[in-house]
């Protein structure tokens, strides 16, 4: 990683080490436990890249990436299994109650997730 940063810095003149130091400083001095909630106001960064810059390539960024990509894979596996077994989830009597439970869990998680995150960090 260090070789990569050095060569890229020499090649393109991008001050990667400075950027990472700045990102690390920004992350360690964040106002809120979850960095993405702060938002990015740096005008040097284009609008589409602002949420990415806001995450500072921190542990929270890799955690989010892992959760998102791994869940996509698991979702794909789940749908694949349903297709292979010719299973219609909408015909299952447990589908509606289970969906409601999942929605309830998701909604409740969004309101209480700050506490465990702040404990972890």
């Amino acid at each position: 990683m260090m070789c990569r940063i050095t060569t890229t810095e020499i090649t393109y003149g991008w001050r990667l080490k400075d950027y990472f130091a700045f990102a690390a400083w920004k992350f360690s001095n964040r106002q809120l436990p979850w960095k993405l909630k702060e938002g990015e106001t740096d005008e040097a960064v284009g609008e589409p890249d602002r949420p990415l810059a806001c995450m500072c390539f921190s542990s929270q960024y890799y955690f989010t990436m892992f959760m998102a990509s791994f869940s996509i894979m698991m979702l794909a596996f789940g749908v694949e299994i349903m297709l292979r077994k010719s299973y219609n989830m909408f015909a299952d009597p447990i589908f509606v109650p289970l969906s409601l439970i999942i929605v309830a869990v998701c909604v409740s998680n969004t309101s209480v997730n700050i506490l465990p995150i702040s404990l972890l960090l």
Binding site: R4, Y19, A44, D49, A53, M73
Partner: peptide, 29 residues
């Protein structure tokens, strides 16, 4: 000028981090 440098850095590191994470997670998959 300002935007392109920061965006290039972000784009480069984004690609690298995605590939690196994929390599780490594939055995789990």
């Amino acid at each position: 000028k300002e935007e392109s440098v920061v965006e290039n850095i972000l784009d480069d590191v984004k690609g690298y981090s995605a590939d690196f994470l994929a390599i780490l997670v594939t055995p789990v998959v």
